[in-house]
Amino acid sequence: MERRTLVRAAAALLATGLAGGAAAQEVTLRLVSAFAENGIYVQRLQPWIQKFNAEGKGLLQINFIGGPRAIPTFEVGNAVKTGVVDLAMSTGAFYTNVMPEADFLKLTQVPIAEQRRNGAWEAINQVWNEKGNMQYLGRMVENQPFHIYVNKPVSKPDLTGLKIRITPVYRDFFQALNANVITTAPGEVYTALERGVVDGYGWPIGGIFDLNWQEKTKYRIDPGFYDAEVSLVMNLPAYRKLTPQQRDFLQKQVLALEGENTFWTKYAADEAARQEKAGIQAIRFDAASSKAFVDKAYQVAWASAEKQSPDVAKRFKPLFAPK
């Protein structure tokens, strides 16, 4: 009887150990968004998280913590770097306080699929690993040019006398156009426009309706420039703790998310039409001025990048350029 009891006890302990081992295999990653939860980027990410969790049961899960109300926009990068959270959906412009090179991602002129083929993705990760304590997982937004939105008409690429809200994305370019620049978080722009603190702002083609900025916007300057980059980044130690199986699953899911990036081309066209319908007029320059405008945007940005981090800029520039 005593022997039988010991066998049963040993079996119970073994079962408990096996169950504990199985449970320990599943890892939950904490994810935060640098963008508002009601915005298009989070809306696009939510179905992906649901699919991720459904297919990753027993292996890998994501716990979406929230947007800027959880962690302020410009603190998200440091939260990833220090491991306060495991994952973030953000844009490089929002974590230049962690690593200035993050802003260089706006200068990519080839899609993420090509970046993975031509070595750009690996080059980015070498820098992100070393300087940001991050793993650059993948890019979920492409084909979203930035524009200048203003409440006063301009007849040429010159912003003299205008107060323009910026992020690091376009600080140097707008200053080169003689603007007076003001940095604010996205959540403060509506009030700044309403009170006349700013005369306009830089923003991608999409997303202004999510923030109701169309109510305070009269003009959009065309053409667009750069490419809005929204990506998933991960704390490097957390990434390295994953098993090979978990990493493979994570990469598979990120590649699936990138595979949906064709959405953004149509979205850009739809948003331009929506802006027109809302009364936002497009300001267009002649062909020569338009080309000079875009050329200047890239010349100023690369010059700034080369001054800030010459080795990284030299490495990135040929990989980011179209062939």
Rank of each mutant, 00 (worst) to 15 (best):
G259C: 03
I166C: 11
D222W: 02
Y267F: 15
E260D: 08
K296F: 10
L257P: 01
D222E: 12
Q144V: 03
F316W: 14
N63K: 13
D286W: 05
V80N: 05
F316V: 04
Y170L: 12
V197M: 03
Q135E: 15
G66T: 00
N78S: 13
H147M: 06
E276R: 13
P68M: 09
P47Y: 02
A192L: 13
E188V: 09
V80L: 05
P111A: 11
L257D: 01
F293M: 02
I205V: 15
R220T: 14
E114G: 00
V27E: 00
S290P: 09
F209H: 13
G200R: 07
V150K: 06
Q50S: 01
D248R: 14
V76H: 07
A272G: 04
I62E: 02
T262R: 10
R274Y: 09
L60C: 04
I112Y: 09
E37M: 09
V42H: 09
W213R: 14
N143V: 02
I164T: 12
Y95H: 15
P111W: 04
K307G: 13
N63Y: 03
A185W: 07
V110L: 07
L159N: 07
P237K: 12
D311H: 02
L29E: 00
S289D: 13
A185F: 08
I182N: 10
R220G: 04
D227L: 03
A292C: 06
V300K: 07
F225G: 07
A185T: 14
E260N: 07
G66A: 04
T265V: 13
D210Q: 07
I49M: 03
N97Y: 02
K266I: 02
T160R: 07
A282L: 08
G132Y: 09
Y201C: 09
I65W: 02
E37H: 06
G67N: 05
K266Y: 06
P318M: 08
R165Y: 15
V80Q: 05
A54D: 00
K163F: 11
A278Q: 11
Q135W: 11
W264S: 01
A23L: 11
P186D: 14
V32E: 06
E26C: 08
I112T: 07
S309H: 13
L31R: 01
P237F: 12
I148C: 04
L319G: 05
A228K: 04
K307I: 06
S90R: 03
T183V: 11
E306F: 07
G196F: 14
I65N: 00
I112G: 02
L59R: 08
G138C: 13
L232V: 15
D86G: 10
I164E: 08
P168G: 07
L31M: 15
A102L: 04
A70I: 01
S289W: 08
D295Q: 11
T5K: 15
T184F: 11
T91D: 06
F174H: 08
V42W: 12
L137T: 05
E114K: 15
P111Q: 12
V7N: 06
I49F: 10
L236V: 08
Q281P: 00
M134L: 09
L31K: 04
E75G: 02
A321H: 09
L105A: 03
I280S: 06
G207A: 12
E122W: 11
L107I: 08
R165P: 03
R240F: 03
L255A: 10
D295E: 14
W203M: 08
P186G: 10
Q25G: 03
K317C: 04
T91L: 07
A282G: 03
G58Q: 14
V27C: 01
T160I: 09
